Simulated scan of single mutants.
Amino acid sequence: MTALVIGLVLFIGSHSVRLLASDWRSATMARLGEKRWKAIQAVVSLLGFGLILWGFSAARLDSPLLWQPPLWGRHLAGLLMLPAFILLVAAHVPKNALRDRVGHGLVASVALWALAHLLANGRVVDVVLFGAFFVWALLDFFSLRRRDRLAGNVRHDGSVRNALIAVLAGGIVWAFFAGFAHAWLFGVRPFG
């Protein structure tokens, strides 16, 4: 579990510097240069992600069960993943109305992913992993939305056509993941 926690601190911490220490981040980036800052942040993130994967897989084997998730929790989790995948795709489709409305779809997607997996899993290691990501994503999402409001950042140039493309593509990715990839990667069928 130690590797998982260290990985979470590194990964989430590297993605929270702007949230927690914006002035320090700006000063350090000015001193190091943007490319060097981003390279260091990428290395820390990748190291953290690797530790998360390794730590989670190791801790899963003997993690105590806190509660037995109900069967409907797995089905609800599978359904919640549909908007999570749509928001994930919408965050990367340029000029779409969905991205304009949500604001920070990638972070919202992470929050839905974490919530879905908290509903479907009841071990200590699950609560640590998905709970950490859920809390971080909520704090980050509302912080980013607040920063946008204060800066007057409002987008209204996104098209409904591109939003529909994001919804369709997100739905296709969700169907592939729910029907095949999740079982292949993690040994669990969301609707099986």
Score class of each variant (00 low, 15 high):
M1G: 13
M1I: 10
M1N: 09
L4K: 07
V5P: 09
L20I: 14
D23P: 14
S26Y: 15
S26A: 15
M29K: 14
R31H: 08
L32Q: 01
K35C: 00
K35D: 13
R36L: 02
W37A: 02
K38C: 02
I40W: 03
G48E: 06
F49K: 02
F56G: 02
S57L: 13
A58C: 12
D62W: 11
S63R: 07
S63V: 04
L65C: 13
L66W: 12
L66M: 11
P69T: 05
P70G: 06
P70Q: 14
W72C: 00
A77E: 04
L79V: 09
L79M: 06
P83L: 04
P83Y: 02
L88P: 03
L88S: 09
A90G: 04
A90W: 00
D100L: 08
D100I: 11
R101G: 12
V102T: 03
A108F: 12
L119G: 06
L119S: 04
A120P: 12
G122H: 08
R123K: 11
V124K: 01
L129M: 01
F130G: 02
F133G: 13
A137K: 07
A137Y: 10
D140W: 14
S143R: 10
L144V: 07
R146S: 13
G152V: 11
H156T: 15
G158E: 11
V160N: 08
V160H: 07
A163I: 07
L168T: 15
L168Q: 11
A169N: 12
G170N: 08
I172F: 12
F177M: 13
A178R: 07
W184I: 10
P190W: 02
